[in-house]
C-alpha cells in the first residue's frame, strides 16, 4: 500500500492561537481512518487546513498528497487533486440550485484535468445515477444550495456532492452530531458504496456504531493538536467515552 496522505509535524493557528502543534499522520490508499479526540483538540482544524481554508494559518510542517506538496496549492487546486470536505455546517448559497452548483464544480474539475465540459445530457446522467442512489429528489436538486434544508437533508446533500465529484480523499466532519439513525445510515451507506482502492476517507466522529458500520481501518486520537495514539479498529472500544480521552491525554 502506498501512502496517500502524509502529514509531517504540521503546525497551524487561528487568530494567533496555536491549534495544531506538530501533528503527524499517514493515510494509505483505500483506507478509512477515524479522527477522534475531545472538543478543541484540532480535528476540524486539521480538515480545514488540509483543504486550505484561508482562515487558518499554517506555521510549520509539510503535507504530501499523492506525492505532491498540498500546502503549496490553492483551495480549488486541492479540490482538483481530489481533496473533499463534507462540512459539518454547510453554508447557504441563495439563488443557485444544487444542480447548477454541481455542474460548475464538476466542470471546473474537468477543465483542470484538461477535459471538456460535460454536455447537458452527460451531466444529467452523471447526476441522476448518484441522486437516485442517495435518495436525493429532483426537487432537492432544484432548491438553492443548503437553503431551507433540514440538518439531515444537508448531510445527505454533502454526501451527494461527494458522490458527484468522486474525490480521492474524502474528509467527513462530524456527520453524526444531531442526526437520527436513518440519516446516519445514509452517510454510512454513501461511504460504503464509495469505498474504493484509490479513495481514502478521514472521518471525525464520536459514534462507535457509525464508525464500525463503515469498517474503519485505523483510529487516531488527537489531543491538543497532536496525534497521541494510533491504532486499529479495536481502539474504538477503548475510546468512545470522554474518560478514555482523558486517559489518553
Amino acid at each position: 500500500m502506498t501512502a496517500w496522505l502524509e502529514i509531517k509535524d504540521l503546525k497551524a493557528s487561528v487568530d494567533d492561537k496555536d491549534i495544531l502543534n506538530g501533528l503527524n499522520m499517514t493515510v494509505n490508499e483505500g483506507e478509512v481512518h477515524a479522527v477522534m479526540g475531545p472538543n478543541g483538540a484540532g480535528k476540524s482544524t486539521l480538515f480545514n487546513v488540509l483543504c486550505g481554508n484561508p482562515h487558518y494559518r499554517v506555521t510549520g510542517g509539510e503535507v504530501l498528497f499523492k506525492g505532491k506538496n498540498l500546502l503549496d496549492m490553492s483551495v480549488d487546486e486541492r479540490a482538483h487533486e481530489g481533496v473533499f470536505l463534507a462540512f459539518q455546517l454547510p453554508v447557504e448559497i441563495p439563488g443557485i440550485s444544487m444542480a447548477t452548483f454541481m455542474k460548475y464544480a464538476l466542470n471546473a474539475g474537468r477543465r483542470a484535468k484538461g477535459m471538456k465540459d460535460f454536455d447537458a445530457v452527460g451531466y444529467m446522467k452523471h447526476v441522476k445515477v448518484r441522486s437516485k442512489a442517495l435518495g436525493v429528489t429532483d426537487e432537492m436538486l432544484k432548491r438553492p444550495v443548503n437553503v431551507g434544508f433540514s440538518g439531515g437533508e444537508k448531510k445527505r446533500m454533502e454526501m451527494f456532492q461527494m458522490a458527484v465529484l468522486e474525490p480521492s480523499l474524502c474528509m467527513v466532519d462530524e456527520m453524526d452530531s444531531g442526526l437520527d439513525v436513518d440519516a446516519l445510515k445514509v452517510v454510512a451507506d454513501a461511504i460504503n458504496v464509495m469505498r474504493a482502492a484509490d479513495r481514502s476517507f478521514m472521518l471525525i466522529s464520536h459514534n462507535r456504531r457509525f464508525l464500525e458500520s463503515v469498517g474503519v481501518d485505523k483510529v487516531h486520537v488527537l489531543v491538543k493538536g497532536k496525534v497521541v495514539k494510533t491504532g486499529g479498529r479495536d481502539l474504538l472500544e477503548e475510546l468512545t467515552s470522554f474518560a478514555a480521552y482523558q486517559e489518553a491525554e
Partner: peptide, 16 residues
Amino acid sequence: DDQLFYCQQRGLGAEE
C-alpha cells in the same frame, strides 16, 4: 468568506 471557501473547496476558482 465561508461561501467563497465552500465554493472553492468544490473546485471553483475564486472569481468563478
